[in-house]
């Protein structure tokens, strides 16, 4: 199975360890992973700011780089959702990492170990947009593709915050244009995680984690953030 790994721009530049973990994990699970060199950004920052009209170059570049793969996989629910909904040039199936593992590879066990207590942060775009788990607002049968995978990791203790799927306040350019609300939302998410005495806040979107990490570091908190790929790939 030939998989094109889509590494979102900010992961490429600031969180390479997340892309490395994703690559190693997919390879361990038997995928032939290719990383197109000329990939850049999915175009979401412009589109969500009201400038979808400017994303033509991004869309073309993305479609060109990811033509011809069986699957395109990315460790970001948000970017995947954007591509799915708005890149009409792309001819291929794109998956967020967790849903690719549960729905395509049908992973039933992992050789991973992470002996820590972690707090799960659900990213809204992965959670509500891609339906990676049942949503607290809906009257529906509970399920979670993310927790299904985390349950395969040895010695891992997962804590779910009191408000299980409240937004962290990142929101793309919202994080600077509505700085006060954004930070307040982030602080409130962190407080709930800290109430559970977690050592790490983990999630499927580095954008949320980058925002939460920025606040944690400003608070000089010992709590760290990690992407789910890093947990699933840990041994």
């Amino acid at each position: 199975m030939r998989v094109g790994l889509f590494v979102p721009c900010y992961i490429d530049q600031f969180y390479p360890q997340v892309a490395i973990a994703t690559l190693e994990l997919l390879e361990k699970l038997g995928c032939e992973v290719v990383v197109p060199r000329n990939q850049t950004c999915c175009g979401q920052p412009m589109a969500n700011s009201g400038f979808a009209s400017m994303t033509g170059g991004c869309d073309r570049n993305f479609a060109k780089n990811f033509a011809g793969f069986d699957y395109i996989v990315s460790p970001s629910g948000s970017c995947v959702l954007h591509v799915k909904e708005h890149n009409h040039l792309l001819n291929g199936q794109i998956y967020e990492l967790c849903e690719f593992l549960t729905d395509v590879l049908h992973v039933s066990s992992l050789n991973a170990r992470f002996p820590h207590k972690v707090g799960l942060h659900q990213s809204c775009h992965g959670h509500r947009g891609l339906r990676l788990a049942s949503m607290s607002e809906r009257n529906e049968k509970p399920f979670s593709k993310v927790e299904q995978l985390l349950n395969m990791v040895s010695n891992l203790e997962v804590a779910i915050p009191n408000r299980p799927d409240e937004c962290c306040g990142f929101g793309g350019t919202f994080c600077v244009t509505e700085e006060a609300v954004s930070v307040k939302m982030g602080k409130d998410r962190i407080r709930e995680q800290l109430d559970n005495n977690v050592e790490y806040i983990i999630g499927g979107d580095v954008s949320c984690l980058m925002h939460l990490e920025g606040i944690l570091r400003r608070q000089a908190s010992p709590v760290k953030v990690k992407h789910i790929a890093e947990i699933l790939n840990a041994d």
């Binding site: 590494v7 892309a19 060199r37 700085e179 570091r217 400003r218």
Partner: peptide, 20 residues
Amino acid sequence: PWYTQREMPEAPPESFQEWY
């Protein structure tokens, strides 16, 4: 405005593409 109440992400020595 990011920096008012948040630290910037730390810059890693190389990008993922460079590592790759």
